[in-house]
Amino acid sequence: MSSYNVKEMMSKKDRLAPGHRMCAGCGATIGVRAVLRALHEEDHAVIANATGCLEVSSFMYPYTAWEDSYIHNAFENAGATLSGVETAYKVLKKKGKLPEDEHFKFIAFGGDGGTYDIGFQSLSGAMERGHDMVYVCYDNGAYMNTGIQRSSATPRFADTTTTPAGKCSDGKMQNRKDLASIIADHDVAYVGQSTFTLNFNDLHQKAEKAIYTEGASFLNIMTPCPRGWRYPTEDIMEICRLAVETCYWPMFEVEHGKWRLTYEPKKKLPIEDFLRPQGRFKHLFKPGNEHLIEQFQAEVDRRWEDLLYKCNR
């Protein structure tokens, strides 16, 4: 992997053009830009995209924000669609119908709806077959495109439009699905979980490994949504920092089955620090709801211990 030089990196031509219609302050496009920066300049790419915020905003006819070839097919099938593209590449190369000295990389982007839920079968199939591609989930923890409905990626107790907190409800009742582990269990080449850090080094390294490791790879990137999480747009980097420092969103990778922590907080912060700035958890801070925060903390701890164990720590 190449050494990380921010200036060099940022001097590359942006592969996501401005003018897309994502909300001001959207985390998804920050993530997309970071992943695409890991592409080597001489390489071409085909981007597949599941239906979702990113898709309806980034290719609104006739405006495409993508500098590379791009295909959106439907909500639930970015994995299968891109496996068709990748297979076409393989066979056209074999048949001598594409120039030998030009190289393509294949990257799919889907939100947690298109990845964890409706697109899960298609993703699982593509990963199991081992296509040489990367599937990137921009995980903002709910169906934001349709108006903040819960998904299987939504954390417990989050107030969403289908799990509203109310007199008889504390928000979502289930813990979030651990998709990165599930995909790692597909025996794929590479899985990375990351989010934004100030120098983006962690995400960059993982994206580069995912793109340039032969075989199927999966990246799970937490990309906060100011609208759905209810925090002021400018606070995104702080939200990400707190997610990592509280161990709510651990940074790890699984390379050919080998688990590794890529960041460990020096002092694990209490989960309240991550929950408090977000409107979707406001009800947890009402007097009498302390036990809910305790439960949340217990779940974070349990998962963190589990991860440490997997990473042989």
Partner: peptide, 9 residues
Amino acid sequence: GGTSKYFET
């Protein structure tokens, strides 16, 4: 590619 540049957000 990149035609969104012509849309001024």
